[in-house]
Write a protein that binds this DNA or RNA. Structure first.
Length: 840
RNA sequence: GCCUAGGUGGCGGAAUUGGUAGACGCGCUAGCUUUAGGAGCUAGUGCUUGCAAAAGCUUGGGAGUUCGAGUCUCCCCCUAGGCACCA
């Protein structure tokens, strides 16, 4: 029968089947595992979106598609895949958007929810829709509040008055993690320091564990590195310096104890309280005060000021160098940071660039104590920058001549033994400031009683503390949350004495909402036990999460907080593991037409119009083909058209088989070999989330199948086509389902009946390959002369392993002979089945 | 400054343990097809020289190890991300 190509099938027409299958999948619960009984549970989690702004953008879709493909692959490999989705809808992101468009956050949430769920359906992910959750649902945040209470009861939530980060635009305090280069991570306003009393979570108590466990986690390395940097554990030495003529000691922190032999002055942070003691009643008092005032305000205005210009003020005092006996001038200096170490620094200008610049400016002694590795001692008069490398000690008493690597520890011990120091560890990590003076979040479930002068948690049976619907939800900027204007909300009785008490009116940070959602998903449809937010049996079955896919921008926020909260649950005896995500994979970022996507540039790509034009399958496959999943890629309109073309080719190929069963044959070894190779390669690629190369291999396979166009009768088997569809199914779930069902009906000549069980392609077993088809009977041998390619030929595979045969054939080549002419072969390198190299 | 990834055609990107660099796709060129547009099909496409056959060059730069280096070693440059007045 001649090949015919009916017009109506020459292109994809996603609008006719994508939503049809989405509905069918949902109706048939194709992606809803049996939470209680699924035999091989596989928890495939992706970071749930903030439903702010106009909707899902193509970056979200990139992440979700990549995660979904892995889930679909695992499902076809026979695992009980659980792939839930929800909305991280509480918090500043959503609230700011609501304010911007003049809507009440609670009302906007409903609109956003509908829009996001519509979009999330349209991208064709295999979500377990029955397990969705929203963080602003009282049934959810009841437990967020419960968590706060548990931490309070264990002494891990506490109040403290200290300088906090305050964003003047968002009108709330922020955690350290939400301040990027001195600016608010959301609105980029310069963050102010304010002295306020706030609730904190004692995450620092877990610093060592958070650090140590990293080694055991299968996470994208850069995220582990970022967490390690953020925790910022530094081991060093605290060193005491006696002040000349005063019974006061200054304590400094250093990681280079051996350079104390060359310490010639000391600087103090202008914020340090000890300054007033040192200058009290001296002629330097007034000047010091003024200097501090100026420098503090300069640093606040421009955090980079001190880098540009180092400034100091001599306060008329000297400290004694406990190693050398030198009198060292003491300065207040703008580059000394109160938050790091002790806020006081011993300075060794020969071996620290900052100290060097300062010493030059104020004409302070520069004494090198390290001879560089080249053996030439440094001449302080000729130095134009500090020497910060390793070397050998000089002018260091009994340590002179010792390599610095060794001296570092020994000199530290020496200082400690003389009573002038002790070992210490500093951390960059600070406790997590959890209070927010905003409206759209879970009210912190605490009550303050004036009579008892004490904070009490809300009784657990009274949870949730519902967020009331109030008209004045806008942030106030006064340091009080909007709820503080609602007496009905905050007037409560003291749980202890029954007297008039006041509810906390701040809400908790959004990152608390998302720190525990992975535990809630599997249990959303089961009543929690009453004691904990999940069903313990179900949690045991599904957690920890098998693979978590999301953006690396959450390295030190969500991913750190979530680990911390999990450790607390573990310590409470509620979980038998203490890491929530055994594997975390950070996907890359999508840029558009070569530029970063941003609202201000106006190049944010919303997937909807592309889905409408090309279908979700095309967009999904295109996004995955852009580049390695952990690199991201550049979204271009011409590229997506190319993918539409490719899928249309697959569409035509499969349809040619459906419509012309006669073209299906049983024998074409070339095609069968290509199929087995393709199955092997795609399987290995998917196991490693190498989606771009998996698609390339499918393309090669399609190129092979369509080598003869139109295909000759009998060249393509049903299995060739079915394997193609199965391999493509995770990428293009709708069109493969459509074609699969068609083939089942047409090729197998089955009659469609109403009662027939729906056998989705997405539950069909992943195809397997047979090694015997991977063996090629012809092998290509490369002939090199002095390592340069001169010729190649193919030879029967068994013979390709015999040097004698290969050498004979190689030497018979005219091209090779030309290059060998008049030369003697000095050596022959033979790699069986690969190449032969003549060295002349 | 420190830490972590990277640097391959016009572009996105492929390359097992060192063994044919440039898979796959985009773009481009020519031809066919279509009323036209779009689309489709066929062929070509790293660079230089050459009518051609062919030769030379080529994985950020430089050195080294090797019969043979994108891959290994050393030095340098650049880009992206993280941390940073960090002692």
């Amino acid at each position: 029968m001649p090949f015919k190509q009916p017009k109506k099938v020459d292109k994809l027409h996603p609008e006719s089947y994508e939503s049809k299958w989405q509905e069918k999948w949902q109706k048939e619960k194709v992606y809803q595992p049996d939470i209680k009984k699924a035999p091989k549970p596989f928890y495939n989690l992706m970071m749930f979106p903030y439903p702010s702004a106009e909707g899902l953008h193509v970056g979200n879709m990139y992440a979700f598609t990549g995660a979904d493909i892995y889930g679909r692959f695992m499902r076809m490999k026979g695992l009980g895949v659980f792939e839930p989705i929800g909305l991280d809808g509480f918090g500043i992101h959503s609230e700011n958007y609501a304010i911007k468009i003049g809507k009440h956050p609670a009302q906007q949430a409903k609109v956003s929810q509908q829009n996001f769920y519509r979009q999330l359906t349209s991208i064709g992910n295999g979500f377990a829709w029955e397990s969705k959750l929203e963080t602003y649902d009282p049934a959810y945040y009841k437990w967020t509040q419960w968590i706060f209470i548990q931490l309070f009861k264990r002494g891990l939530a506490y109040r403290k008055k200290s300088p906090v980060n305050f964003c003047p635009s968002c009108k709330t305090v922020l955690s350290d993690e939400q301040v990027i280069e001195g600016r608010c991570e959301r609105c980029k306003s310069v963050v102010e320091k304010r002295e306020m009393e706030q609730w904190y979570f004692r995450i620092t108590a877990y610093a060592d564990r958070l650090l140590k466990d990293l080694e055991t986690l299968n996470w994208t390395n850069k995220v582990k590195v970022a967490q390690r940097n953020w925790i910022g554990k530094t081991e060093g030495l605290l060193e005491d310096w006696q002040i000349d003529g005063m019974d006061v000691k200054l304590t400094t922190f250093t990681t280079w104890p051996h350079t104390s032999w060359g310490s010639t002055f000391i600087v103090i942070s202008p914020e340090h309280p000890i300054i007033s003691t040192l200058v009290k009643g001296t002629s330097y008092e007034k000047g010091a005060k003024e200097f501090c005032k100026i420098v503090i305000s300069e640093n606040k205005k421009d955090p980079q000021a001190a880098i540009k210009d180092k400034k100091g003020y001599f306060i008329g005092r000297f400290a004694i160098n406990h190693l050398t006996g030198w009198k060292m001038k003491i300065f207040i200096a703008n580059f000394a940071v109160m938050e790091f170490g002790t806020g006081i620094v011993k300075c060794n200008p020969a071996h620290d660039q900052k100290d060097f610049e300062f010493a030059k400016k104020y004409d302070l002694p520069i004494v090198p104590v390290i001879v560089p590795k080249d053996g030439k001692p440094l001449d302080p008069k000729k130095l134009d920058h500090a020497y910060i490398g390793e070397g050998v000690m000089e002018k260091a008493g009994e340590f002179t001549g010792m390599p610095t690597e060794k001296a570092k520890g020994l000199i530290a011990d020496y200082i400690i033994n003389k009573g002038n120091g002790k070992k210490t560890v500093t951390m960059h990590l600070r406790d997590w400031c959890i209070s927010r003076q905003r409206y759209w979040g879970p009210p912190i479930p605490m009550i303050y009683c004036d009579a008892c002068k004490k904070w009490y948690p809300v009784a657990e049976e009274d949870l949730p503390v519902k967020l009331p619907f109030i008209k004045n939800y806008q942030p106030t900027g006064t340091g009080k949350a909007p709820l503080a204007q609602d007496p009905d909300f905050y007037h409560v009785k003291c749980p202890h004495c029954g007297g008039q008490a006041r509810r906390e009116t701040d809400v908790s940070d959004t990152f608390l909402d998302s720190a525990w959602y992975q535990f809630r998903y599997p249990s959303t449809r089961c009543a929690a036990s009453g004691q904990v937010p999940w069903d313990p049996e179900i949690t045991k079955k599904w957690l920890p999460v098998n693979i978590y896919i999301g953006g690396a921008e959450h390295s030190v926020l969500h991913l750190l907080y979530s680990r911390f909260i999990t450790m607390v649950f573990h310590d409470m005896g509620l979980l038998d593991f203490d890491e929530p995500f055994t594997r975390f994979y950070a996907h890359g970022l999508i840029i558009a037409e070569g530029a970063k996507m941003s609202k201000s540039r106006g190049n944010v790509i919303i997937p909807d119009s592309y889905i409408k034009k090309y279908g979700a399958d095309t967009l999904r496959t295109y996004l995955m083909f852009l580049g390695p999943f952990d690199h991201g890629g550049d979204f271009r309109d011409t590229g997506i058209a190319g993918m539409y073309k490719f899928l249309s080719r697959v569409w035509r190929l499969a349809n040619s088989v459906i419509l012309n069963p006669d073209t299906i044959g049983t024998k074409n070894l070339k095609n069968t070999k290509a199929m087995h190779r393709c199955i092997k390669e795609v399987t290995e690629d998917l196991e490693n989330l190498r989606y771009n190369t998996a698609i390339a291999h499918i393309m090669e396979y399609v190129n092979q199948l369509t080598e003869n166009n139109p295909p000759a009768d009998g060249q393509i088997t049903e299995k060739h086509i079915k394997s193609l569809l199965l391999l493509l199914a995770p990428f293009a779930p709708h069109m493969t389902e459509e074609l699969w069902q068609e083939i089942q009906l047409t090729v197998n000549s089955k009659q469609k009946t109403e009662k027939e069980v729906f056998n989705s392609i997405h539950k069909y077993p992943w195809p397997s390959y047979d090694e015997k088809f991977l063996v090629e009977d012809q092998t290509i041998i490369v002939v090199q002369i002095n390592g340069r390619l001169r010729d190649s030929f193919s030879i029967q595979s068994p013979k390709a392993a015999l040097q004698e045969e290969v050498e004979k054939k190689a030497k018979s080549s005219a091209k090779v002979q030309k290059h060998l002419e008049g030369k003697t072969i000095r050596k022959t390198v033979f790699v069986p089945g690969k190449l032969i190299n003549f060295v002349v």
